[in-house]
């Protein structure tokens, strides 16, 4: 009990983290389930069927591939457009900055159901056919803001004297962008793209409004939820989770290794410095 009282914060934090992962664990465990019917909500028995035969249920893999395709296209477009806007915001003077900022902020503060329905209203009034195109348009729309915010943060964190130094060292503006600005902002852009893909891949509400007869992975899951979700869906979702987790953990690990190496370097450098100053002392 004393342990708990002394470590109450640690214990609370740990419990919250576990809480965050409980449903993920349930999704994962149920991917090994062997339910007699389509209702995969409680444990029946162990089976690897869903993992060995992921595309066994018609429609699942088609919707999965559709979602990946939509995610890649919309992420690419949104990343390019959002990065351009971020550069304009940080590097250029222009009229209407307030309006621009508002237009970037609002999509992040609007409920999905409002964005989805208003975009549908636009397409209906234009009698634009619903399908992959409309879903991609929608995904680009709600992803741009996140890209702008992420890249802008990175750009603002960039020391302006780095670009000045480049200009001072005979690089014109194109060359400065190519050799200094872009390489330094690239990690921010990559992060924004990953986030954009995650948002697009997992989006249900906005997609559902604008999909027409198109079936993305979340739309498939939604439809299946009414009549029982096949185990394959759990397996696919678990796979996505594991791949995404692996990517970020590896990135974390690389950053951690680099930090460690840096610390080791610093230590050896300090030793070098000491030796050097001793040397200087003995010479003088």
């Amino acid at each position: 009990m004393r342990f708990v009282r002394r470590h109450i914060l640690t214990v609370a934090a740990f419990i919250v983290l576990v809480y965050l992962f409980i449903p993920v664990a349930v999704v994962g465990v149920l991917s090994f389930n062997d339910p007699p019917s389509k209702y995969n909500t409680k444990w029946y028995g162990f089976s690897l069927d869903a993992w060995t035969n992921m595309c066994g249920i018609p429609g699942v893999c088609e919707s999965f591939i559709e979602s990946i395709k939509i995610g890649l296209i919309s992420t690419f477009v949104a990343t390019v457009l959002g990065t351009m806007v971020a550069f304009a915001l940080v590097r250029y003077r222009f009229r209407g900055r307030k309006t621009t900022n508002l237009l970037i902020f609002l999509p992040m503060a609007t409920p999905e159901v409002v964005m989805g329905s208003s975009l549908l209203a636009l397409f209906l009034n234009m009698t634009f056919p619903l399908g992959t195109t409309t879903v991609i348009i929608a995904h680009i729309m709600f992803t741009i803001s996140f890209v702008v915010v992420a890249v802008k943060a990175r750009l603002q964190g960039l020391d302006p004297s780095l670009e000045e130094a480049s200009r001072d060292l005979y690089a014109d503006s194109r060359s400065t962008f190519q050799h200094v600005t872009f390489p330094l902002v690239a990690p921010g852009i990559a992060g924004a793209a990953l986030l954009g893909f995650a948002l697009s891949f997992d989006d249900f509400i906005i997609s559902f409004f604008n999909a027409g007869t198109l079936v993305t992975f979340p739309i498939y899951v939604w439809g299946a939820a009414q009549r029982g979700i096949p185990v394959q869906v759990n397996a696919l979702a678990t796979l996505v989770f594991l791949v995404a987790l692996a990517i970020v953990l590896i990135a974390q690990f690389v950053a951690w290794r680099r930090r460690k190496a840096l610390q080791a370097d610093m230590a050896s450098r300090d030793a070098d410095l000491k030796a050097l100053s001793m040397d200087a002392l003995s010479r003088s």
């Binding site: 965050l20 992962f21 409980i22 449903p23 993920v24 349930v26 999704v27 149920l30 909500t41 409680k42 995650a198 997992d202 249900f204 992975f217 979340p218 899951v221 939604w222 939820a225 979700i229 869906v233 759990n234 979702a237 678990t238 996505v240 989770f241 995404a244 987790l245 970020v248």
Partner: peptide
């Protein structure tokens, strides 16, 4: 990390 697993499936998991 939990958001990497499908929103709909995680919500559905609460049924279990």
């Amino acid at each position: 990390a939990p958001t990497f697993a499908s929103f709909l499936l995680r919500t559905y998991a609460w049924r279990t």
